[in-house]
Every structure is written in C-alpha cells, then in structure tokens.
Amino acid sequence: MHTTESTALDPAAAEGFLRMFHIAHPEAGPVGTRLARVREEIADTGTYRHTASELAYGARVALRDSGWCTSGVPWRRLKVRDLRGCRDAATVAAECVEHLRLATNDGRIRPLVTVFAPDAPARPGPRVWNEQAVRYAGHADGTGDRRYRAFTGAVRAMGWQPPAAPGPFDVLPLVVETEHEGPRLFAVPPEVVHEVSLEHPDLPWFGSLGLRWHAVPLITNMRLSIGGVHYPAAPFNTWFVGSEIGARSLADEHAYGAARPVAEALGLDTSAERSLWRDRAVVELNRAVLHSFDLAGVTVTDHHAESLHRLSWLRSRQRPAGERPAFRLDPAAARRARAGGPARFSGSPVETTRPHSTGRLAELLRRPAEK
C-alpha cells in the first residue's frame, strides 16, 4: 500500500493566512465570519478550500517572497490560473503546455502561476517530476545537459525514445504522477518551446558553436503552501537572469562545459586555472546570452540589475509572522527532478508506454496566442 496524506490541517495555519489576507483586502468583509466557516470546513473534511481571491493573493505573495521573483515582475497583477479541479495526469500535462505557450507570449515573457489540485486527507494532489517544463536530455555519450543524465536514463526506461541522432538540445518529456495513475510521460510539443540561438556581439565565430537556450524558466516541481493547504503542482515562471544560462548551465562542467571551447577559441591558456581563462570565457558566454535574447526580442535580465533588485527586496522584506504563503522545494521532489524517481506513490505501477500527446494538447496548440 502507498501512503496518503491523512493528517488534518492545522486551523492555526489557516487563521494566520486568512487574517493576513483580510488585512490586505478589507473589502473581503469581516475575517471572523470567514474564520468560522473555515473552522467548520476543517472539522468536517480535514481541510478547506480557498476562495479564488485568497488563492491568487497567496500565490502572488509566495512568489514575491520566494526570491524567484525577478526585477520588473508586477507581482500584484501576476496572473494566477486556478485549475484546482485538475487531477488527471493528461490534463495537468496539457495545462503545463498551455502555461508555457501563454508565458512565452512571442518573447515578451508573461509571468504566470498555474495551481492544480491540492493535497487533501487521503487524496494527494498530482506531482510534476521535472525541475522545469523545458529541460534538455543528458545522453550517455556525454551529449547534452549532463545534470540530467540520470533523469534521461529513467525516462528512457519508462518508454521515452530520443531522436535517432541524439543532440545537445533534445527536450525531455514531462513526467506527471498521480495517485491513481502513477507516473506518466508526455512529450512537450516543439511548437511551444521557444528557443534562442546564441551569437556574440563581437565574436563572429561564436554562432558556429551551435549553442541555444529556451526562453521561459517554467519551474514545475515546487510546492505552493498557503494557509496550511499544500499544492504540490503549482508551476510558475518569471523570466531568465542571463547568468543562469551562461554561467550556471552552459559554462558549468557538470552541465554543458562550454567554457573550455569558448576559451580555446579565444586563444586563452587553459592549462591552469590561475590564468582565469574560465572567468573570461564565462563573461563572453553571458554577453552572448544577453545580446542574443535582446536581438530575438525575448525578455531577460542581467545579474547586476538582479543583484540590486534582490538587495532591495531583502531590505524591505517582511519578517515571517505566522503561516506565510511560500513556494518550497521538498527534498524528495528535488531528487526526482535529477534522478527520475523513485515514484511518490509507490503502490502505482510505472507506465512503460511511449510518451503520448493527448487530444487536449492538440486543441490547446490550435488556439491563437493571447495578447
């Protein structure tokens, strides 16, 4: 038998959040009336349901306070997609694809949060294993993103087949797990993966390296907690900081290891770290990312602007008082994002069919982009 979340919600956690919400939204009416209804609901069911306004406020505050909220994001107007009725894996995957499409917005990245069904007593919500909706495979021959070699091996064992000629930027399938279905694979349609080919403002040879990166950092494996209610699948995005791509992904030896070929093309001495060849190569990679995203009209920020923003955020940040909304990364979720398992609901069999694209996915992709 697999485990279920059977512990009733703490009414004090709900009360702390609801008082916070009503202070920010006095138009919602007396908090006492709402608290009485919520206490009754918790006593009857072990949990309670947020109103649409409470959910939106909680998600916005959680993103603002998480440190993931990049500069320029208007958190008070952040769009929150309320999909708490979605519990089936195919629907969750389809709506992650729709989120990616909406967020891309022709390069003018639109910050969004999508909230799926919460955990409830004896009825846990769905999980997305992937760290982000778009991640590149790490193949056994060293091609691709080496951080995801274990995850790539796991999804191959579950039925995913990479291209006949594996490349450095093969998009991994989404793995969505539900209690009643187990883990299932879903291909991410290439039509919704907006990528930027990288070139350099001063180095004509840079484009021949064949580097590129996707436009939207859609984080899919963090748990949204609001007033004691936990939403294990609540994908959200802002936009990239250039150094996340250039320094952390492309330059890192444990990811793409692109710093060395860049340094060699620059004619730098790579025989010793004290020559600081790596630092110089990383600067050029970061320049190429910012230049290319700007040239393609895709929203991006640089790490200097972001450092100033984070310092301002830290100075003005309210200290935790009671149960504040938050995005949290559970250790088990972090392991699944890199290792591709183990399954959260161990009693459910792992599906061994190939990734499939549902009719819902096709329907979503036919819609015109919202402006």
Rank of each mutant, 00 (worst) to 15 (best):
R223A: 14
A150H: 10
A14E: 02
A62M: 07
R223V: 15
A326N: 07
E131N: 15
P168L: 10
S357Q: 15
T358M: 14
T114R: 02
G46N: 11
V80R: 03
L250H: 13
A281S: 08
G257P: 03
S71C: 09
H139R: 05
R212S: 09
R354C: 11
R84K: 00
T358F: 15
W129D: 10
L285E: 04
G67Y: 09
K79M: 09
L9G: 05
T358G: 14
A56G: 00
A255T: 09
V193E: 13
A14H: 01
R328M: 03
H139Y: 02
V31R: 04
V92P: 06
A296E: 12
S71F: 05
A157C: 00
P204Q: 06
A24C: 06
A305V: 07
E131Y: 15
A164H: 06
A339R: 13
E5A: 15
G67E: 10
A165C: 06
V31I: 08
E177T: 05
P368Q: 11
L174Y: 12
G58W: 00
R310N: 10
E5S: 15
H303A: 14
E323Q: 10
R315K: 14
A36C: 00
L185P: 01
L55G: 03
A251Q: 05
P74F: 00
L18R: 02
D141H: 13
F236E: 00
G341M: 01
L100P: 09
S307A: 15
A272I: 13
P11N: 09
L211G: 07
L250K: 11
V282H: 09
A94I: 10
R147V: 09
A233T: 08
D82E: 01
A90R: 13
W213G: 02
N130S: 09
I245C: 04
H139I: 04
A14P: 05
K79F: 06
F345E: 03
T143C: 10
R319W: 08
R77K: 06
L35H: 04
P124R: 07
N237D: 12
Y57F: 15
T47M: 01
A117S: 12
N286R: 08
R338G: 00
L290C: 08
H50P: 04
K79N: 03
T45Y: 05
E244R: 11
G153Q: 10
D65Y: 14
L290S: 12
A36N: 02
